[in-house]
Amino acid sequence: MLRLPPTRWTRPPSLDAAVAALGEPGARALAGGTDLVVALKNRTGRPQCLVSLADACPAGIDTGGGGWAIGAATTLWDLERWTAPPSVAAIPEAARSVAAPPIRSRATVGGNLCLDTRCVFYNQSAFWRSGRPPCRKAGGEVCHAVPGGDRCHAVFSADLPPALAAVGARVRVAGPDGERRKDVADLYTGQGLAPLALAAAEVVLSADVPALSGRSGSAFEKIRARRGLDFAAASAAVWVEAGDDGACRSARVVLGAVDSGPVRVARAEEALQGSLLEPEALETAADAARRAARPVKNADFTPAYRRKVVGVAVKRAASRAWQRAVGAREASS
C-alpha cells in the first residue's frame, strides 16, 4: 500500500509557536490533512516537518463586530450547518459541496482556503510520474496538460474561496510580522505553481464575512461528475443586491475550477447590474464567464465542456442568489 514518507511532526501550543515552527526550513502547515496527507503519500510534497495548526488557529464562527469571523480551524462539517442569512448563503452551500461527509468532518476552512492547485498529471503516484519528465509543478520544465505551455496550468478547485470572494470576505493572516487582513481574492496569485499569496510562515486565521445588505443574496453552484466526493469541473459563486427600484444594484461573480485561481468576472457583474436577472441578462453574464474561463485538460470532463457549463453555473447561481435577495427583501419589508 502507499506509505507516508518518514516526516517529522509537531503540534505547537500557540499561534506564535506555530509561526515560529513554520519559519524553519522545509516546514509545512497541516490542518485537516485531507489533501496534504494524500499528497505526502504520492510524494508530490516533501516537507521535512509538518506543523499542526490544531492549537494555533481559532475554530467556530464568531459573530462579534457586525459580521462573522469564521475560524480557520472550523471544520466544513460545522460550517455547512451554519444557518447563514441569504446574503451569505453561498458559504454553507459551498462547504456542503466539498468531498463527502467523512472528509468534511476533518477538512477545515483554512485548509480549503489554502488548497493546492490540482492537475491530473501532477496528482499521481511517484511511480506514475517516474515514467515521464517532471512537470513544472514537480520542479521540472514541461507541462503535460498543455504541451509547450509556458506556465503551470494546475487548476484551482477549492469551493469556499469563490463563495467567500463573492460575498466580499476578507482573510486575517498571521505571520512573523504580525497580523494583516486582505481580500479573499488577494489571497491567490492565479499561478498554478504557487497559488497562495502568502509569505513564508504565514497562516490564515479566519475568513471575515461582512454583514451585508438585507436585500442581497448569494449562491454557489458546482458542476461535478457525481453528487459527492468530486472536485469541481467548474463552479460559480454569485452575490447580488437588489436596489430600491427592484433591479439588481450590484453583483459579484466569481468562478472556480476553470483557471489556476478564482476568477472574478467583471463583465458578468456588469451584465447583471441594472437587470432583473431576466434570461437575456443571465445569458450575457454566462457568456462573459465562458470567455473568462481558461480550462485545460487536467480535470474531469473536456475543457470545452467545462467552459460551457461554467456559464450554466453562473446562471443558476445568479438565479438562486437573486431569489434569495428578493425573498430577503420581501421578508424584511
Partner: peptide
Amino acid sequence: LEALRWHEGANLNTNFLDYKIPLAPD
C-alpha cells in the same frame, strides 16, 4: 460514469476519486 482515462499508455484515474464509481447519493 465509468471509464479509464489514459495518457500515452499511462492510466490517469486509478483511485476512488478519479475513477467514478457511483456513490450512494447518485
